[in-house]
Simulated scan of single mutants.
Amino acid sequence: MKINMPVTQHEHELKESSQIVSKTDLKGKITFVNRDFIDISGYTEEELLGQSHNIVRHPDMPPEAFADLWNTVKAGKPWIGIVKNRCKNGDYY
Rank of each mutant, 00 (worst) to 15 (best):
D68R: 15
I38Q: 01
I3R: 15
G90E: 02
K15N: 12
M5C: 10
I38F: 02
A75D: 08
V83Y: 06
H10M: 12
K77G: 08
V7S: 03
K23C: 12
Y92M: 08
L26C: 08
C87I: 02
N85P: 04
S41N: 03
I3K: 14
N71I: 11
M61A: 07
P63G: 12
S41K: 00
L48T: 00
T44E: 06
P63E: 14
T44N: 03
T44W: 03
L48C: 02
M1G: 14
I20P: 00
N4R: 10
H10F: 15
E46C: 11
T24H: 04
R86Q: 11
K29Q: 11
Q51C: 08
W70T: 01
D91F: 03
E46L: 08
L69K: 02
D68Q: 11
E11M: 13
G81T: 10
G76A: 11
E64P: 03
S22K: 07
S18I: 04
P6F: 04
Y93T: 01
G42Y: 01
E45A: 08
F66V: 05
L69T: 03
E11D: 11
E47G: 01
A67D: 12
M1D: 13
D36A: 08
R35N: 09
M61Q: 05
F37C: 02
D25T: 14
N89D: 13
K15C: 07
Q19A: 14
A65R: 10
L14E: 11
